[in-house]
């Protein structure tokens, strides 16, 4: 089981703030998120953390990972 947290407007795109996903086959962050967020996903302006640490889109997710996907913000 894998948990994905959607922050900011990604929670509206996905229609939920947290999603639990069971992995049938190994997959990358890129594939996982592109399937779920489609065109709304702008990699240049997005931070993806796995267990609190930044990862590249090619990171292979595994059971137990907590993925957080969030837009860049400007810090006010």
């Amino acid at each position: 089981m894998l948990r994905v947290k959607y922050l900011g407007h990604y929670s509206m795109v996905r229609g939920m703030r947290v999603e639990e996903i069971s992995l049938d086959a190994p997959t990358t962050i890129r594939k996982l998120l592109e399937e779920r967020l489609g065109d709304a996903l702008d990699w240049d302006q997005t931070i993806v953390l796995v267990n609190g640490r930044p990862v590249s889109p090619d990171y292979k997710v595994k059971d137990g990972d907590v993925v957080s996907v969030m837009p860049f913000i400007g810090g006010g």
Partner: peptide, 10 residues
């Protein structure tokens, strides 16, 4: 929104 964002990013 930065509260949650800041928490995620420590």
């Amino acid at each position: 929104m930065t509260v949650q964002w800041g928490q995620e990013n420590s």
